[in-house]
Design a protein around this nucleic acid. Structure first.
Lengths: 331, 331
DNA sequence: ATGAAAGCGCTAACAC
DNA sequence: GTGTTAGCGCTTTCAT
């Protein structure tokens, strides 16, 4: 049987209050008894039960993380940075993959509330913002990461997607590309990316006509298909901006099928700078998100909120960065 | 303030025992009161505290997962399958990335014990098996996944690495390759892979001489370096077996630098079939691990152990599978 | 400097 | 069918 604070107290010949104090380093304990109790605890292999302490202290030191899909490298990296920063601050994380499914989102939120997590980090997803609003109104410390919710007063960490799209276009323009196309998925963040992309073109007097293709999911296959549609046009683009890396790689594959060399005959630029971008061939020019900082900042924000060190909500906007590799080239 | 079972009982005009019974669907409750209580709970937005129930029931319905690195796609996928199966069975998971660091491993195990997780899944890592032995002797339900521990009586789910290596060699042999080389990292699983590889060669009377290169970590860069060493030899191999995908991709990159085309002039075969294998160019022939089944089986085993439905430990060995893509070719 | 005792929110006997 | 009550292992006043 696991030993309890009573066992320790008994064996050390002191009260449980005393043991509790040496565990938590609170109150005043003589050096002598502290050493005694510490020794006894070690000897018995005693580990204080955090669930019992959570009962009284009202803090579990665990954070719930709702994330679309842990097996997606982008989210996995984000989760890792959240985890790291959390552990650094004394928190464990409980990860729940939602697959962008509102039912799962709700189910997990309920579960996390029952488990009395100290706070929740919402990563991406959440097309229904009502759930978030409810959470907050119930007093659950909540931070939204990698997703902007303009209409809600909530702590947020995200990147400037508009700027990212803008940078992508600027890069292509600087290489002399005039005829560009876009492959995207209709998500909030991507809409901003496309908006930024268009903006940069417009500043040069270039219009992006109908050359926007919409993917239904973020997959290499989907990217390939849409890129094929773009490439079979007689007036095909010389450069493609894909709103995430898998779609971009799909475009590269499509080019290969059309006998077009990337980057010589077609430039491709992605977004996110996930593991894919480094490993594919040619290595992908892409817009990098500072993933580690995003997760870290999100956790910091949450912990401040939990500890009540912060009376105002805030939005932290980090900046994306162009990473030039080998999939883009002077025309 | 969050409402408690007392609030509900009071408002419904019943005792807390009754409320508890309707929550857990135990005992006998008249239809009428059940409906009444249910209504009141909903009205108050009451969520039973699992931490309070964990106190008495002695089960937190959470599982600790120790894993080397969540940001590695291989582990992330594994984690996802563990998570999925866990949720299916009513458990949440608490993920801890250990970076193969024994100190972290120990620290997290201690933490998980304090948090009273119902069981622990150990993924890979754990060069010190003593920690595992201790865990088990303390009665913590424990399952080891993606790692074999021949000397320990512990539930295990792993793959037949020997067979995987064997399959890799057979494939290369069938393509007519006689002069092969290996890039590996000195881990238990890889030793088996190499052993299987050699075995298949020997059966054809071929010896693998000194052509085994050892990487210090599993990275594209490391694979590239070692492959370069192999390729600059006048008597260079016609095929390379790398013990994981990143190393294999490194080899592909090296070949490119030497002006050798893959697969025409050099065949490369990897191991694991991670996301990398599908996305690189050329797509990698590799030995696939049934990741989803591994995680799933691990969780099943653990839950059986927790529920005491199983008196004997077992080892589940799943079989790897050759996936032929475009990085290998008839000589 | 140390201890006694009252909870924290819930479950599970057991009584009615 | 429903209620009473004794814990679960710990923290935290409040005495001493």
């Amino acid at each position: 049987m696991k030993s309890t604070i009573y066992d320790v107290a008994h064996k050390a010949g002191v009260s449980i209050a005393t043991v509790s104090k040496v565990i938590n380093q609170t109150g005043r304990i003589s050096d002598k008894t502290r050493k005694l109790v510490t020794a006894v605890m070690k000897e018995m292999g005693y580990e204080p039960s955090m669930i019992a302490s959570a009962m009284t202290r009202k803090s579990t030191l665990t954070i719930g993380v709702l994330i679309p899909d842990l097996s997606n490298p982008f989210f996995a990296s984000l989760a890792r940075s959240i985890e790291d920063r959390g552990h650094h601050l004394g928190y464990n994380i409980m990860i729940c993959s939602t697959d962008y499914d509102p039912d799962k989102e709700l189910k997990y939120i309920t579960l996390l509330k029952r488990k009395s997590v100290d706070g929740i980090i919402l990563v991406s997803g959440f097309e229904q913002t009502k759930m978030i609003a409810d959470l907050i109104s119930q007093g659950m410390p909540t931070v939204v990461v990698a997703r902007e919710i303009p209409s809600l007063e909530v702590d947020t960490v995200s990147i400037d997607n508009f700027l990212g799209g803008f940078q992508a276009a600027k890069h292509l323009l600087s290489l002399g590309h005039k005829k560009t196309a876009v492959i995207t998925r209709d998500l909030w963040s991507n809409r901003e990316r496309v908006r930024g992309f268009k903006q940069a073109l417009q500043e040069e007097g270039i219009e992006l006509e109908q050359d926007i293709k919409y993917a239904t999911d973020s997959s290499l296959e989907n990217g390939r298909e849409l890129a094929c549609q773009l490439l079979e046009s007689p007036d095909r683009p010389t450069a493609i901006f894909a709103c995430d890396d898998p779609l971009a790689i799909g475009a590269v594959v499509a080019a290969r099928e059309f006998g077009l060399s990337v980057p010589d005959q077609l430039s491709v630029i992605g977004f996110d700078d996930t593991i894919w971008a480094k490993v594919c061939f040619p290595p992908l020019t892409t817009i990098a998100q500072p993933l580690y900082d995003i997760g870290s900042a999100g956790m910091d924000l949450l912990v401040q909120e939990i500890k009540g060190q912060k009376s105002n909500k805030q939005r932290i906007i980090l900046l994306p960065k162009l990473v030039i590799r080998e999939s883009t080239m002077q025309i």
